[in-house]
């Protein structure tokens, strides 16, 4: 599954941050998962834990905490704001999966419910994000 690649990115960024902050041990990794990318949080955490075991000793015991972030879209043409979850109801499973791989593909398959424009921005909840790390 391609989530593995993103999980590797989280671990690699956490390690970089730990080195920057001169941490000898990372105790907690806080991750935000934007709804647009449609990643299962529990699955993502289990992948992260698997990678943490082999990446670097200072990350091995880190607890991983994730928060799901609702995806909000805003039309650049008419200013209408709406939730991705509303648009998702009208997407086929195949189209939703394509957005899962590359969230910007939302512009191909989603239109503003008010004016039908594809010209919108994702103001919140695009994808996976390393919020912070904690440690000593």
């Amino acid at each position: 599954m391609h989530e593995w690649a993103l999980a590797e990115g989280i671990v690699s960024t956490a390690l970089k941050e730990a080195e920057r902050g001169k941490f000898t041990e990372v105790t907690r990794i806080n991750v935000k998962i934007g709804e647009l990318q449609q990643i299962d949080g529990d699955l993502f955490v289990s992948l992260l834990k698997e990678i943490l075991q082999v990446e670097d000793p200072k990350l091995k015991r880190a607890e991983v905490v994730f928060e799901n972030q609702e995806a909000i879209l805003k039309c650049r043409v008419c200013g209408h704001e709406w939730l991705f979850s509303e648009s998702k109801k009208g997407l086929s499973d195949e189209d939703a999966e394509l957005i899962h791989f590359v969230p910007e593909i939302a512009h191909v398959y989603i239109r503003c419910p008010a004016c039908k424009s594809p010209d919108f921005e994702v103001t919140k909840g695009r994808g996976v994000w390393l919020e912070s790390i904690e440690g000593e």
Binding site: G9, L98, E104, H107
Partner: peptide, 25 residues
């Protein structure tokens, strides 16, 4: 591979994001 034959009306910041995503995965 993801957009098929459909147009991809993607602006600057989203182009960057899509490119970064492809390079990362």
């Amino acid at each position: 591979h993801y957009a098929g034959d459909n147009p991809s009306p993607i602006r600057g910041i989203d182009i960057s994001n899509a490119m970064i995503e492809l390079l990362a995965i």
